[in-house]
């Protein structure tokens, strides 16, 4: 069953163009110039129940705008969407009870009160039975290791602790669909891993459907097998994460450590030298030519150590973005 179905989803903004200087500002009072910006441009995709999908794209690509349309916060300019069988922007209570949105850059907890108070209010707004609520709360605080922090005013928590509380607040009503917008932004590695682990465990236990945006490839690798890539409002890739490696990772990186104590001068003949440091170097070589290049190097030089790896996922994703942009500009 499809949890999310988006069909030709489009959002256009009219943005006021402010002129430079005082004269420009005065002119803007009576004659305003607007620019039309297509934040999301005919995006279509479908996500099945239980899937964990990553939504990738550079800043301003339209990820958050899409999430906001899917959660019913803003109305699309064109297109349609069904989320959990509802039209999200009608904001039916039945719809809103079944999903949650977590935004890493915003907080929904009451700043001056302990998180426990916000959770209680949440219970009342969602009319959750007290026993179920307590059970879920205990489960979540244990999962995230924050049992001792719920009585502390939210403003006194660290960013990582606050994010964990935000996540708990979002999961208390046991949503069937979880939309996450940059849930680990600004967090240190330890907190990032804790959030990832919580999401993974929660998914395994409850089978909740998740759609997340993130700038951290680690989040994506740890959680999602399918990715949607969006650039300049257009969906340019929809498929498995491994597909990105196949499609865009046409080269590999050979990390070499030479026994001679220094990198030989003729290394550039075998590929592109992307890093050089004392006796070691990274050599970028086309996928098909790896064996041939490696053989040739080993024939000529004494090599102490060798590792062959795919280029970092970040680099590949950047290529997907660039390709999307190039085809957009060409069109």
């Amino acid at each position: 069953m499809a949890m999310i179905e988006a069909e030709g989803l489009t959002k256009t903004y009219h943005v006021f163009q402010k002129k430079e200087g005082l004269l420009g500002a005065l002119r803007g009072l009576y004659r305003r110039e607007f620019k039309e910006i297509k934040a999301v441009d005919h995006v279509s995709f479908s996500i099945d129940a239980g899937e964990m999908v990553a939504f990738l794209g550079p800043n301003g690509a339209g990820k958050t705008t899409t999430l906001k349309m899917l959660s019913g916060l803003i109305y699309p300019t064109a297109g349609s969407a069904r989320v959990l069988g509802f039209t999200p922007w009608r904001r039916d209570d039945a719809f809103r009870r079944r999903f949650a949105l977590v935004m890493g850059q915003k907080n929904q907890l009451w700043w001056d009160l302990p998180a426990a108070d916000s959770f209680q209010l949440h219970r009342e707004i969602y009319s959750l039975p007290a026993a179920d609520f307590q059970k879920t709360l205990d489960e979540l605080t244990e999962l995230l290791g924050v049992e001792r922090l719920t009585r502390q005013a939210v403003r006194e928590l660290s960013l990582g602790e606050r994010m964990k509380m935000e996540l708990i607040a979002a999961l208390l009503h046991n949503p069937r669909l979880l939309l996450l917008d940059e849930p680990t932004i600004g967090l240190d590695v330890v907190a990032q891993v804790a959030i990832q682990k919580c999401l993974r465990d929660y998914h395994a236990r409850r089978g909740v459907t998740m759609l997340l945006t993130s700038h951290y490839m680690r989040d994506v690798e740890a959680l999602c097998s399918r990715v949607l890539v969006i650039t300049q409002g257009k969906l340019v890739y929809d498929g498995p994460l491994s597909g990105i490696v196949e499609r865009f990772g046409q080269s590999k990186v050979i990390r070499l450590e030479f026994a001679e104590g220094q990198v030989p001068d003729d290394l550039g003949r075998f590929g592109e030298v992307v890093r050089r440091n004392g006796p070691s170097a990274d050599l970028k070589v086309g996928r098909a030519r790896v064996a041939e290049a490696l053989g040739a190097i080993l024939d000529r030089h004494a090599v102490a150590d060798v590792v062959v790896q795919d280029p970092p996922l970040e680099q590949m994703i950047a290529r997907v973005f660039e390709e999307g942009r190039a085809s957009h500009d060409a069109a």
């Binding site: 019913g72 916060l73 904001r91 949105l101 707004i125």
Partner: peptide, 18 residues
Amino acid sequence: RTGDLDFLLLKPIDEQFL
């Protein structure tokens, strides 16, 4: 202005009331 209205609109309750 800050966009914090988002969270109020997501609650399963009448927006005007909240």
